[in-house]
Each structure stands twice: as C-alpha cells, then as structure tokens.
Amino acid sequence: MANEQQIIKPKIGIYGLTGCAGDQLVIIHTEDEILNLFNSVDIKSFVMASSNPEEGELDVAFVEGSVSTEEELHHLKDIRKRAKILVAMGNCALCGGPQAMYTGDGTFDTRVKQVYGDVDFLTKPLEGAPVDAYVEVDYYVPGCPVDAKQLFAAIARLIHGSSPEPYPHPVCHECKLNENKCLLLDKKFCLGPVTAGGCNSACPNHGLPCVGCWGPNPDGNFKEHFELLQSFGMTKEDIVRRIRNFGGHKILEYIKDL
C-alpha cells in the first residue's frame, strides 16, 4: 500500500496568466525544496521549467496572474475543469494586481483606447481581474511574490491530502517579531496594519513603509487607519490612490464606504 501510494504521485500544474511570473520564479528559485518537489509530485505543466506541458487531469493547479485577456479566461476555465483543487497564487491572482488599480474608473474600453489607441489585439483584452472573479478558488496563497516557506508549507499540505494553514495576520505581526520600530509612530505612510502579512515585513526591515503589495488584510481597520494617515497630513484621495496600487479589485470592497 505504502509503495503504491509512492508510485502514484499527485499530478500538478503550475500556470501563469498576466503577471510578472515572480511567483513561478519563487518555486524555481527555492533550491532547498525544488528537488523535493520534483521527487514528490508529477509536474504535468510548468512552462517556466519545461516547454513540453501535458494538459490533462490534475490533482492541484497553481495559478499565478490576473485574467486580462479572453484567451486567458478560456485557459483558466479549462484549468478549473481539469483540476480537483485550484490554488490562486500571488497578488495578481488574488486581487488583480497593479494592472487592476483603476478597476471601476470609467469604462475599461475608454482606458484601453487612451493607452493603446485604435489597434487590433490578438486576443480581446479584459479588465484585469482576480482568478476568483471567474472561477471557484479552493485556496489562496498571497504574496508579491509569494513567500517560499509559506508556499511550500501549503504545497506540502495539499499534495498530502491536507489543507493549508491560513495566516490572516497583518504585516505588523512579523514586523514586531523582527523588532522594527513602528513607522506609524514617526508619522510615515505605512500600510502594514491593513495589509496581509506573510512577507516577513520585508520593507519595514529596511526602514521602508509597507506599500500594501500583498493586498488587503480582511481584518484591517481601514476606517481608523485612513483617519490616522490623514492626521499625518495626507489627503484621503492620496491614501486611496496609493492603497489601490496593489489593492486591485479586492481593495474596493474594504474602502467603498470611507
């Protein structure tokens, strides 16, 4: 029985839609784990690692990037049909990413025209949207890019039939574990308390305020945080503009009443 289980490895697909491919790169770059992963799963499709994908049934599909073209939408729907578990990986897949920062501002067609003029596209562009705007997502691994330790902990759980541990804490948790002085006390524009943690407080560790690149922390107290930032002399418009840089689609529901 044990042998049989070892022979039948879980089938995995790793896909990229519109994004910088940084999350896939994290997988490739995690030298400590990459061979363990290749030994433990049957990677059917991972174009960044091999240009010979086999597109069939999957146990787990990891999808990076936002849906930004009709072609990508068809691709995503096809992945969803074939995968038992679909994991959205990285900020673009979770929130839409920077390409979704103007979501809802006027019409998408007007914005496309402003940027590209009248051109024929190879595939119809869509307003950048998170993966769960179109298909059901089973698990979310946030990040910009994802954190290797968090991602591989999730992978280890998923390929062994368990569910990943969520980490619903703000950036401030790890920021304090890293013994950083709170930048808000110096009246710096830091989005740590309203941003999903897990990055090991990468920016505050270097004295740089959090820019919110992991997307919204659903438990964030946005109202009070906006008031605090305004008390530092910032306008609400400026705060909204900056939080939308990485907040994409998802931030809108948290700031709609502010």
Binding site: P170, H173, K176, G192, P193, D219, G220, N221, K223
Partner: peptide
C-alpha cells in the same frame, strides 16, 4: 474597538 488597528503590537 473602533480605534484599534488589531496590529498586535
């Protein structure tokens, strides 16, 4: 509670 940022600091 309205003020708390739940940052855990």
């Amino acid at each position: 509670a309205e003020k708390c940022l739940s940052c855990g600091s």
